[in-house]
Amino acid sequence: MKKIKEPGMSVIVKTVARLVARVMLLFGFYVVLHGQVTHGGGFAGGVVMALVFILIMLAYGKEGALRTFSRTGALTTAGIGLILLVAIAFTGYWRGHFFANFLGQGWPFEFWSAGVIPFLNIAIGLVVLGSLYGIFAALTHFHSEEEEKQ
């Protein structure tokens, strides 16, 4: 048998990563969207979502991960999240003061409650997702470039 050196880890790791990744991403979305009702929030959910792509990068290697989520995509995601955060803050300024909670409170324990907090959670989740994954991707890229030189 001829051994072909594939990027990434073994078949077992790749299969498990493929099966688990979408569920993890869904869980991350859940944590971000339900931050105002249950535990978690933008930061925790963003970390979970970033870990999905870091898992893909560990299992499938640098190329496979950058095909699913490029570095420019990470930068765009983080930028959109930060712009959304500042936009919400300035909309609050227009309605009273900076970061004012200008939406209605809604019903407790419902999804649409706590006014502006869910949108802030989404914005924070986007920034954390893009930044954490982007930092990891940039460091991995740097490492592999150094190896290529040697």
Binding site: V37, A89, I117, I124
Partner: peptide
């Protein structure tokens, strides 16, 4: 004041939103 049942989110994203930013 906030209507959020998760009090941690209420503090972090409403009272302490500057910190979060």
């Amino acid at each position: 004041q906030t209507g959020a049942t998760n009090l941690v989110a209420a503090i972090l994203q409403d009272y302490r939103a500057y910190d979060r930013l």
